[in-house]
Amino acid sequence: MGKEKIKICEEFYDIMPPEYRELVDSSTYGKEGRGWKDVGVAKELIEEHSLCAGCPESIAFRYVLACLPNPEDTVMVGSTGCTSLVFPHVAVHNIHSLFGNQNAVASGLKRALAHRFPGKVKDVVVLAGDGATVDIGLDMTLQSWFRQEKFLTICFDNELYANTGGQESGLMQKGFVSKMAPAGKKFDKVRLPEIAEESGCHYVATLTVSKPNRVEKAIRQGVLIAREVGPTYIQLYTPCILEIGKQAMEGLQEMRDSEGPNERFAFKEYISEEAKAYLASLEKEKKPAAIPTQG
């Protein structure tokens, strides 16, 4: 689609506030190769946000939005959490579902879009926290994977229920003590990436957002594979600096410390054979055709 649908009526161009004119004139919609390097210069990628200063989730959110290959035809489905405070500031379609229902809503939406816009690429991306993905919404998350629904599920894993005061979540690490879980977590962090793999996801990645290039590649692969092959899942570590007792400038270091080779967020990636073949075909399309040799 690109920018052709995002035009201001000629008569009103001069009275529109400048940020809307800039959105139309210099947004990244329809731009080939958009990515995290557009953050900070493109209006639709959250110029201002309402999250805490230094929040790693706000960084992750920007990277995700910057790396969507087809933002003008993407619908993001989320549930209650800090991200829902940011979505009203973002020029990407969003549905705020009932807590935990995000994968069920996305399933219906993806099917409806395919029916309503046949032959047109419409991406659906679920973006939810660990409580919605793994605890309250686990049923909906798994069932969508079992059914091979074609959309990407992104879990912003901050290892607790952050905006309600720090309650224990399934993805919290064992032994961690939080404000509302003073006895410490008694069991291990749920291994959702492994469960996703077993449940039929064709692309599964676990990482932090300390390395934007890596996040960009994961998000693009997640969306593209989901579009053509089947469900995909990305678990991003986005620590809540308030709830783990860090300062605003310490979020990045916290992520770096958690992604060492033996740490819980060491980079891991699983790609099914079918998805590998699809990615290879995309690469082949990108390369110029070989020049035929004579003789």
Binding site: K5, I8, C9, E10, F12
Partner: peptide, 11 residues
Amino acid sequence: LVLWNWNEKAA
């Protein structure tokens, strides 16, 4: 609905 040129009627 009238600021954005999304169809002929809006224009």
